[in-house]
Design a protein around this nucleic acid. Structure first.
Lengths: 231, 231
DNA sequence: TGCTAAATTTCGCCG
DNA sequence: CGGCGAAGTTTAGCA
């Protein structure tokens, strides 16, 4: 990600035409080439933007533009739609680059995060003698929703979903493969827990020795009594 | 605006509950206290955010959090809705502040910016002998949409709107008052041009000696033939 | 992959 | 200021 604070004016031509007069703004260039133009107010919506897939090209300002004070021209063009965003930069106050990596992404929820908390508290739902190690157990490829131990003390990795789909099984499989290479954890077994598990996902999971557990959200919330919160 | 690049995890509790696992992200704190959390991909929508009006408070992590690697805690709370966003910062890579000032705002348009270009090209629509001086003529209180000269060489300030309302007349009035104090420009007359002019706006404009001109977008575009673009 | 409907929607217009 | 509807909508779920 590249962050630029600059005096700039902006023209957009695409599904509509729009213009931003000269002012100091934040230009956020994401790794995929997409651009967001933010002011110091308003909501989360940028003043203007270009969605991926798109490419940013830096052009030389022509003489007329240079006379007008333009020192750099950015042309951001969309691959398919031919939308174009032109940033006329007059003055750069700040310019920095940062490696952010791929984001693990939002665990959104009217349910899922809560479900995770509930299952952590009611870990015995997975079986007699189960105990919680921790939620969001970090691995090199991302956090495992819940790490637990079964009655015999063996590690159990739990993948939690509201709707249990193939993707979730694949995800858990990757975690298990990685964790079973760690002698301190191995052997690690897997539990795929969800409110609803698609037949395909169940078949795949059981074929890989992953146990499927259906969770009753209302019942779990009933026990929890709803008094507790995330904080 | 404050820009922070940090390793952080984020919890949101409000209209829903959501969690962002630990990862490197951009935290954008706007002047109104609102917060945007961006990753290096996706669209213009942040991973998470808090809309204004809200306040950001920095808290000390407790012992358990400190052990988990949290060096700073941000609590962003919404004034009315009691929504809360908690940013657990593990590591700050970058932290900078920037004064951006108030943004003049987007001149959006399926029409207006295009209309401005078209009228600039077809300035004779305002009357015999009219000539364009320039679009976006800058004044101390903002840019006048179009500055032109009439057949006699007198300055004409044009305010352009899609829907001509009282506000537009007031705006043009302010420009006219300012410009008429400039001996190089004065006397400056005003033209209020729009696709549609509200009766109240027309009355006010004509009362102030401002001429109203109705623009036919399709007709103007027809003459322009659609071959030209903003660039 | 294409559609359908919700969104922590945001934004603008109209009363 | 509240309601209604569109958005360069975006996003998520489902066939």
């Amino acid at each position: 990600m590249r962050l630029v604070i600059a005096n700039c004016s902006i023209d957009y031509a695409g599904r509509l035409s729009a213009h931003l007069p000269l002012a100091r703004r934040l230009l956020m260039v994401k790794n995929d080439g997409s651009l967001l133009v933010h002011s110091d107010g308003g909501s989360y919506k940028p003043l203007n933007w270009m969605s991926p897939p798109c490419t940013l090209a830096v052009a030389e300002p022509d003489e007329r533009q240079r006379e007008a004070g333009v020192v750099e021209l950015w042309k951001v063009t969309h691959q398919k739609t031919a939308d174009m965003l032109i940033v006329s930069i007059h003055d750069i106050e700040h310019d920095s680059r940062h490696e952010l990596g791929v984001d693990p992404g939002l665990q959104k929820d009217g349910v899922e995060a809560h479900l995770q908390k509930l299952l952590a508290e009611q870990i015995e739902r997975l079986g007699e003698g189960y105990s919680l190690v921790r939620r969001e157990y970090m691995t090199a490829i991302g956090p495992v929703d819940i790490l637990a131990r079964d009655g015999s003390g063996a590690s159990v990795a739990v993948e939690l979903k509201r709707r249990g789909d193939i993707d979730g099984v694949e995800q858990l499989t990757r975690y298990l493969e990685l964790m079973n290479r760690d002698p301190l954890l191995a052997p690690v077994t897997g539990v795929f827990a969800a409110q609803e598990i698609k037949p395909q996902a169940r078949t795949l999971a059981e074929d890989r020795g992953i146990r499927c557990v259906l969770l009753d959200y209302d019942e779990m919330r009933g026990i929890d009594d709803g008094h507790s919160r995330l904080f």
